[in-house]
Amino acid sequence: MTTAPVLAVDHVRKIYAGGDRRVEAVRDLHFEVTAGELVCVVGPSGAGKTTLLRCIAGLLDVTGGEVRFEGAPIDGPPRGMAVVFQEYGRSLFPWMTVRANVELPLKEKRVPRERRAVLVRDALATVGLDDVHDAYPWQLSGGMQQRVAIARAVAYGPHVLLMDEPFAAVDAQTRADLEDLVRALWSRLGVTVLFVTHDIDEAVYLGQRVLVLSNSPTVVLEDVAVDLPAARDQLSTRALPRFAELRAHVYGLVQQAKRGARTVMADPTAIGRPNVYEGRTT
């Protein structure tokens, strides 16, 4: 297994300039993601999570620094990267069937027809949608639509899968199922996943690492290693004392972020908060 970073976010800065107004959204983001990792990014609302993801996906130019994908600076969406957006209802082509939606990126990659059929069938089977190939996305429930979007990403065969709050708009039960689906896909396919969410529980449950972002203009507040067992389960993992500790720790960080912290305070009790660091062992 290689340990070279598949994704390097190198002192990225993003300033939105419109007319004579300049808004600094991202100040200095710096982190790396190793091949095969599952990294979650959390932060308060307005932390520039989506800006960061769009910069990584090559949908947005950075103002300073650079993002490197497999060693090469990103300049437009690179081959080998797939994105699952939050707005599943708006990211599937409503005029195409489920099959055509999954197949289109493969056609553009010039995958031969027979191979495409196999990839589409496998990807839809992987996300548990064997019987809706000919349906239109809007005929499916929200959770199923997001499964189609995931199947499209999986069939594309990416090295890195970016997910932008993909489950923010589905109900809690569906959400738990989809979280387990992401873990399953990740461990089966060995794909690198960067998962952006505002949900602290979700981040701790899914990730090997959780990057906590500050308020905008954004920096990385802390890179938290999640030392939970690799086999995760909605009931038993969430019941672990360690899960509660990590969750509390990340929660404390997000609270600090909301108050505008740019660096982690050495002693959170100093500002009148319960000491969320007590249980930390890492």
């Binding site: 090559g58 969406p77 081959r79 994105v83 957006f85 708006r90």
Partner: peptide, 23 residues
């Protein structure tokens, strides 16, 4: 045309002909 759909077309690197026809 939806912003997210345009982003999707870019992410999956739709070529100009496909962007014209399908998007």
């Amino acid at each position: 045309i939806d912003e997210v759909l345009r982003d999707t077309a870019r992410v999956y690197r739709l070529r100009p002909a496909a962007r014209f026809r399908h998007l």
